[in-house]
């Protein structure tokens, strides 16, 4: 599911990144600069997948666990920004603030933004943490197998657990929302090959 070839906020490096595409051969200028660089570039396997030297014992791709902290952190920061915006909107809609002194207005706006931002960031972080725990757990239980099933089951279970103390109906609805979000994400990210199956 987590394809490393796709560039994004959680996978900032990939071979599709043009800034990583540094030519290995010397090029036309190399002939002039150094005779040692003047060799047949077909000896080097260029094109196709890029080649890296991996440190001993390291995996070629980052797995779910290695990515989970970045995902949680991204969720927290996104939640904080979103919650801050919501808080700002609430502050602008607060009509009692209009006639107050500037200091009071400032404090109230800060309170709205920081409290709403913090609580939204916390909920986002908790959801991301649950999803990561379920995802890593599934990956571990299924003998280090990584595919879409992990994502869907983890997302559904996250929704169920997050709303588990709010009653049966809300719990099931939470699970449905989680599963729906995972499906939407999958259809969006893999829209090329999602309908080919």
């Amino acid at each position: 599911m987590d394809d490393n070839s796709k560039k994004g906020i959680f996978a900032p490096y990939s071979y599709s990144d043009p800034s990583m595409n540094v030519p290995v051969t010397a090029g036309p200028a190399g002939r002039i600069i150094s005779p040692y660089m003047n060799f047949d570039p077909s000896y080097l396997q260029t094109g196709g997948e890029s080649q890296f030297i991996y440190p001993e014992g390291a995996n070629k791709n980052r797995g779910r666990f290695e990515k989970s902290f970045s995902q949680i952190g991204g969720a927290i920061i996104a939640g904080g920004a979103l919650g801050g915006l919501f808080g700002l909107k609430t502050a602008f809609n607060d009509k009692t603030l209009k006639n107050q002194a500037f200091r009071i207005q400032k404090t109230m706006i800060l309170n709205y933004v920081t409290k709403r931002g913090a609580s939204t960031a916390q909920s986002f972080g908790v959801i991301a943490l649950m999803y990561s725990l379920f995802g890593v757990g599934l990956w571990f239980v299924r003998n280090y197998q990584e595919d879409e099933l992990n994502t869907f089951v983890a997302a559904g279970a996250t929704g169920l657990l997050y709303k588990s103390s709010a009653g049966w109906k809300k719990c099931l609805r939470g699970g449905g929302v989680g599963l729906g979000l995972a499906l939407a994400y999958y259809l969006y990210m893999y829209r090329e090959n999602a309908f080919k199956m």
Partner: peptide
Amino acid sequence: YRIIDDCGGAFSMGA
């Protein structure tokens, strides 16, 4: 990118 990573790691630890 380490900032996001550390933020998430610290949140997980704390939570």
